[in-house]
Simulated scan of single mutants.
Amino acid sequence: MIQIRQPEDALRAFQAAWNSHDMESFGALFHDDATFVNRFGHYVRGVAAIIKLHAPIHATIYSDSTLENELIDVVAIHEDAAVMHFWSRLTVGAAHPAGSHAVDTLILAVLTRQAGEWRIKALENVTLTNPRTGEAVLRGGRSL
């Protein structure tokens, strides 16, 4: 697992844990009482719930998925707290019922440092959609 020595490291650690489909490593990125809102608006609290939300999809429809993250910004709000925004492109393969495709999301993560370790305290994931049609879009204006 990638060590999170500064908030920006969470971007690569999140991507690496996702792409390895190791949900224990994924869960280790979060504080015990962290909250997570997935791209469908499903809210959970706590590492066990975050893992429970992700483990079944990583064993099935996302088993051949990859994630590619791109940092937008990190804003320090305290010496031990930061807000980070990043783009995330999820590419799924044949394991997904809809077949191979990509989805872009915008992620907001709040990170805090406790006992010298940075971890995610809260994360929210929003799917990019056309506001007039509801159709998912990729960054750059291309439709999926």
Rank of each mutant, 00 (worst) to 15 (best):
I2M: 08
Q3H: 14
I4E: 08
P7L: 02
P7R: 04
A13F: 02
Q15D: 11
A17S: 11
A17N: 03
W18S: 01
W18Y: 14
N19K: 11
D22R: 07
D22H: 07
S25N: 10
F26H: 14
L29C: 00
H31R: 13
A34L: 08
G41Q: 06
H42E: 14
V47I: 13
P56R: 07
I57M: 15
I61Q: 07
Y62F: 15
S63M: 13
S65D: 00
N69H: 12
L71S: 08
D73R: 12
A76C: 01
V83I: 03
H85Q: 06
W87A: 07
L90Y: 02
L90F: 07
T91H: 04
A94P: 08
A98H: 04
G99S: 07
S100K: 15
V103E: 11
T105F: 00
L106I: 15
I107V: 15
V110D: 01
T112I: 14
A115G: 03
A115T: 00
G116D: 07
E117N: 10
A122S: 09
L123Y: 03
E124I: 02
E124Q: 13
N125P: 11
V126R: 08
T129S: 12
N130H: 14
P131V: 09
T133Y: 08
A136R: 07
G141Q: 09
G141R: 01
G141Y: 06
G141I: 05
R142C: 00
R142F: 05
L144Y: 02
